[in-house]
């Protein structure tokens, strides 16, 4: 097992190294003046990166690293919310569809999933305010939090930071943040919802076909009992694993949602910077976002390995 973790770590280091090479190539291309040879330049670049000097934004003279991390935190909050919402709904539906495979219910659930997948994210996002207006929901349609509340940046996660303001606003700021997350996370959850239904259904029907389930049935266990004792244990690693391989697609959607809802996340950060000609964000974004996705994939791998050692699916090379 230690061997497995070490291999993951090795993978992390080598992949991260390639990421820094890509970032440096971009940095090199964006900087017109090249005072030193490429290899020396890379070393100086890396030293600066490791020291934390990632550069200063030309727009507002703020350190780029801090801005990038803060926007990443905002996108993460959104994604986590969307994940929780989508999974709580999609897993039960996927299980039902898997059990009644090719039945009427399965048809209905799968159609919903395909519809959810086919809705263009940005379009749903711009329609959302109108939709919520029709149902007379007064949910906020943009931004991170109501500007009335002044929340100091402590962890970067607005949800947590807003809890530090309970002295002045009680829980108002926190509620405001939660309310601001609702519409965008609904939009973002569509994709996760569809994917999870598909994956759960697939895994369930695979597991249900297998011999040991038949054996369990013959022992006289009910479907619910079987689900509880055998199926869950066997399907969750593959669901998590598949979602993990979709992380970067998911992040792409999260950025789009974030841009439309102006929720101060990675997407908006990138877009406004590019529009204002602050291209230095691009290599930074590769390092921050790419690094984050890499790190979380590997952590998920190790976690999966710890919880279910038999399922050692390797998406990445060893």
């Amino acid at each position: 097992m230690l061997n497995y973790i070490m291999r993951r770590l090795g993978l992390f280091i080598s992949t991260a190294f390639i990421l820094t090479l890509i970032a440096y190539a971009l940095h090199y291309w964006l900087n017109q003046s090249h005072s030193q040879p490429i290899i020396n330049g890379y070393i100086t670049y890396m030293i600066q990166i490791l020291k934390g000097n990632w550069g200063i934004s030309i727009i507002d003279h703020q350190p780029i690293l801090a801005k990038g991390l803060k926007s990443l935190a905002s996108t993460l909050e959104l994604s986590i919310f969307a994940f929780i919402g989508a999974l709580t709904l999609a897993i039960p539906l996927g299980i039902i569809a898997g059990i009644y495979r090719n039945g009427q219910i399965d048809y209905l659930i799968m159609s919903t999933a395909i519809i959810a997948l086919a809705l263009p994210v940005f379009w749903v996002a711009i329609m959302m305010p109108t939709v919520s207006n029709i149902f007379h929901l007064t949910l906020p349609i943009d931004g991170q939090i109501s500007p009335i509340y002044e929340v100091k940046n402590v962890t970067g996660f607005m949800l947590i930071d807003s809890l530090f303001t309970t002295g002045t606003y009680h829980f108002e700021a926190f509620y405001s943040r939660v309310r601001h997350l609702i519409l965008p996370s609904i939009v973002l959850s569509l994709f996760i919802f569809a994917e999870t239904i598909r994956l759960t259904r697939h895994s369930i029907s695979m597991v249900m076909k297998s011999n040991y389930i038949n054996a369990a049935y013959s022992k006289g266990l009910s479907t619910v009992q079987i689900l509880r004792s055998h199926v869950f244990k066997n399907i969750y690693p593959s669901i998590i694993h598949d979602l993990r391989s979709n992380l970067s697609t998911l992040f792409s959607f999260a950025m789009t949602v974030d841009i439309v809802f102006k929720s101060k996340g990675s997407g908006q950060w990138l877009l406004t910077s590019i529009h204002e000609g602050d291209y230095i964000v691009l290599p930074t974004a590769i390092l921050i976002i790419g690094g984050f996705i890499l790190l979380s994939s590997i952590l998920i791998d190790i976690l999966l390995m710890l919880t279910s050692p038999t399922k050692r699916i390797t998406l990445y090379v060893d």
């Binding site: 993978l11 992949t15 390639i18 990138l270 590769i286 790419g290 996705i293 994939s297």
Partner: peptide
């Protein structure tokens, strides 16, 4: 390894 690192960059970012 090259593919692995390219895969960690979201499509929208690559496109941008």
């Amino acid at each position: 390894h090259l593919l692995d690192s390219l895969l960690t960059i979201p499509i929208l970012l690559t496109a941008l």
